[in-house]
Amino acid sequence: MRLIILEDASVVADWAARFVLQRIKEFAPGPGRHFVLGLPTGGTPLGMYRRLIDFYREGKVSFKYVTTFNMDEYVGLPRDHPESYHYYMWHEFFKHVDISPEHAHVLDGTAEDLAAECQRFERLIEEAGGVHLFVGGIGPDGHIAFNEPGSSLVSRTRVKTLAYDTLEANKRFFDNDISKVPSKALTVGVGTVMDAKEVMILITGAHKALALSKAIEEGVNHMWTVSAFQQHAQALFVCDEDATLELRVKTVKYFKALSEEHQKMIEEVPVDVQHLIH
């Protein structure tokens, strides 16, 4: 596990975007050879998307041969609802880059048969050859995607009932009326994300500090589902200073001392060489 501690949210956004850029370039995608990217929504990754759009505009990267899978989507929310993740992805990312619509996959929360939709999604990931890099964010309660506390750590894509905390946190997007917040969501499972070759989790802000400490300093625990990634071979936590508030000084010092090594990860160092960096 690597922990990259950066100054603030904007540096995290930039670093994360550079990391994605580096991974895509290293992979050198082309016709019949797609880079497969897992993507989150929410406030934390927004800056990363904006930077990626900049890179695209500067001609540094193309998404033509990139296949994407989004982590989750509300059940029953129309595709064009401003709070739907379809809407978010279109407006914050897809429409700005050259990604092909056939290769941008978002779970359909309005599907008639939700279970079949989840199976279809898993199958698509499999057909794409698995995810090369899954980018995620976490909730203050340590959930990854919509894998709420108590979710199975080997779960696959499925329908999930949202925790009261999540509804409460999201009601501000739905006229402050908790009854309007969709109570269910489709989400990739912890196991689905665990299958990715690499995982990058973005954590910013003091309100996520406890979740970060639970994620990396305590044991694997299904009440903090993101802690499962302690058992992932190539997991990367990228956080800002604020998010380290609950960490031990020892932990912070250790990882900060490695910052020079970490910098190599977003430079043009081949991935297999990077894997030897510690």
């Binding site: 595709r79 379809h86 809407y87 279109w90 619509p101």
Partner: peptide, 13 residues
């Protein structure tokens, strides 16, 4: 046309 709909539903460029 609504590009978002074209992208997600028709899946054409």
């Amino acid at each position: 046309v609504n590009p978002e709909e074209v992208f997600y539903v028709e899946k054409v460029e």
